[in-house]
Design a binder for these strands. Sequence first.
RNA 1: CGGGGCGUGGCGCAGCCUGGUAGCGCAUCUGCUUUGGGAGCAGAGGGUCGCGUGUUCGAAUCACGCCGCCCCGACCA
Length: 518
Amino acid sequence: MQRALSVHRSDGARSNFPNWYQAVVREADMAEISPVRGCMIIKPWGYGVWELIQKELDKRIKDAGHDNCYFPLFIPLSFIAKEASHVGGFAKEMAVVTHHRLKTIDGKLQPDPDSKLEEPLIVRPTSETIIGDAFSRWIKSHRDLPMLINQWANVVRWEMRTRLFLRTTEFLWQEGHTAHADGHEAMEETLRILDLYREFSEKILAMPVIDGEKSANERFPGAVKTYSIEAMMQDGKALQAGTSHYLGTHFAEAQNIRFQNETGELTLCHTTSWGVSTRLIGGVIMTHGDDDGLRLPPTIAPKQIVIVPMLRGKPEDADVLGFCHRLTDALSQMKVYGQPIRVLFDTKDVKSADKRWNWVRRGAPIIVEIGPRDVANGVVSFMRRDSLRDGDKVKSHSMPRDEFVAGAAGLLNQIQATLFAEAKNRLESNIRSDITSPGALAEYFGAGKDDDEADEFKGWVRAPWSNPTGAALAGIEQQLKSLKLSIRNAPMDQDESHGPCIFTGEKGVQDILIARSY
RNA sequence: CGGGGCGUGGCGCAGCCUGGUAGCGCAUCUGCUUUGGGAGCAGAGGGUCGCGUGUUCGAAUCACGCCGCCCCGACCA
């Protein structure tokens, strides 16, 4: 059967999934690899999605009381060295600036040895240390608290292996940093943001997630507690889509972030940090994409409705164009999610059929096609990207023009709801809680089976455990690693009582999610 | 960084084993025909075959080195 994409996923098998993913990124015009290793060029359609993500998330962050700032791209080496586990966690992936000038030596342009920096600068992998330094100067009194700051920035982490959007050397993100008078308040902030991320992911990205706490060895370097939202991709793997950390007084101690409390005592602040990145776009692609390309939730589609005129090179073309112009204007007057509907009248001099398939691949939620017959009958023919086909055939709908205009916002809402419902159903129906031993876990995830079987779609496992620490935890992690599994998080949503621990057999204290992951 | 695969016009690939100076499909451009849907015919443009060194009269093809991409592992938010 003919599909809009050059690479197809093969019925749930994971083997073809990476190729399919790359095909979507490329053919949906989202991004391309750049001349710089591990870095990507985000193209207009992909960046448009990011801008909408920024807009929606920025609003929520500000509504929660945070102000935006901008801190330097460079961080003095001495800053990053201040918090021991923080350095430990990031040391292996730092880009370091050592010179400030180039010189041609022996005909070769190279860093001028005479321009060596006294103190090397690192390109920020995250900004806790430089923001903490500012906090230590900004915060003097309990009246300065809480300090609620956010920044939109690029960061660099020199990863071994990169994938477009999911893990790139440079990526765009938002990082929130807050300081509070006590641990209780800082924990509240950490969880409030976690919930904000969950709500944002579900409502705006139509990507259902499970929020929970990370296990001890997956904590952010320097954190006391780390929480995440985890989304299920269409190959069954988990994607960590956002994190929120309670940093305790670790950074406050390292950087002397103190305030005088009501009784005049000098007291350490409790800090938090949290972020989501362009990785979310990868999550959207792997959550909603299909064999015809990307399917964008209307909330983040740069163009929600695209109108393609069916021109014939005949006199009635003028009528078609006029009809399309008026339709574009009428739709632009309508609102969805409190903002004008984003409509594009695609007048590019390209064959109509090609335009249609380009928009299908890019995932425009509604694609309208107008020909002379539509004009004569005063109707609008359109396709819904969320349910493009009936079997193999493309499903085309027709509706009186005024009815379509009046119902457009509702239709976009419906598409958003359909995408979310599909993803939600996939998530919920693929978490098994009937696996209660390491043996059963190994069997389910295909240990010892041949490649084809091991390659089948697997979801997640939810199981009780006794929350072991130290060597016991490390042993379990090792065991999971041999199955390519990891503990994703301990969901916030927990039952009162728990069965015996899947690993130790001891009394369970909470449920955890186990999955393959990105 | 270890194991495997790959790198040939924008995209997908053949040619490589058995060296003789580049080909196919899609896309692009032009013209004609077609027109409720990914059109047909004819013609055209576009590649120093990832980079470098070597072997050879001659290298996409053989050897060595390097770079990049993908998968698995290691690592990691």
